[in-house]
Amino acid sequence: MSWQVEICMDIGELEIDVKIEGGVAPVALVGPNGSGKTTLLRTIAGAYRPRSGRISIDDRQIFDSKSGVDLAPEKRRVGYVPQGYGLFPHLNVLDNVSFGWRGESRRANRHRAAAELLERMGFGYLISRTSSVLSVGEQQRVAIARALMIDPQILLLDEPLAALDVSARRTLRSYLAKYLVEQDVPALIVTHDVRDVRALKATVYVIETGRIVQSGSVEDLQAHPASEFVAEFFDSGVVAS
């Protein structure tokens, strides 16, 4: 399983020109605010059309400007979890999780499938939360379960731990790291926290003003930061010349 993103595009004033690739292991995308991280995730999800380039997941082209391939978001098999998790507030937990279910259309069947998935993920206690108050951490779990419901070829997680308090963040960070390995689904994760990157053992891509300025392992980047942002992010102090 491998995936590649090589695209050029303009969004407002920002020109994005990036090349990122990965395998089953998580890839972390870090960078300052406004550098194009969220735009990149939305583009892979199919919300924006790049000017040129290609996006492929496991040899399946989902976008290729040369051959004119541009799959609609619903055909990409991409599990997208935006900032704030993007749960549909007018639907309960089971309706949210089963939203992408493509099996039998009867509500009871959809709910059964969603409940089974939540049980498998260890979140069976959320099934009965039809109209209850979900904590931020629970919203994150529901959002990830919903994304997994479509059997995605890649998970796109936009700051999945940002809204959590310190304690919940620690717990969910370990959970996410363990779960992504178990699921065997590639993941591209936007984060602002170096501890997330370490816990996920992710390959890091650093994006600044729409360009990838450095990529590699945490250790590589920490040892040889290519920019002030990278040095600050990994707290390594000195920018490599």
């Binding site: 199919g46 935006p82 993007g86 549909f88 007018h90 939203f99 919903r146």
Partner: peptide, 26 residues
């Protein structure tokens, strides 16, 4: 929230489906 519509599309909805199942109720 525009992200909800993107999520709905990635979960299999057409533009019309995202409109009727997400945008309109909200």
């Amino acid at each position: 929230d525009g992200d909800l519509l993107i999520v709905a599309r990635t979960l299999g909805q057409s533009p019309a489906g995202a409109f009727f199942r997400v945008a309109l109720p909200l």
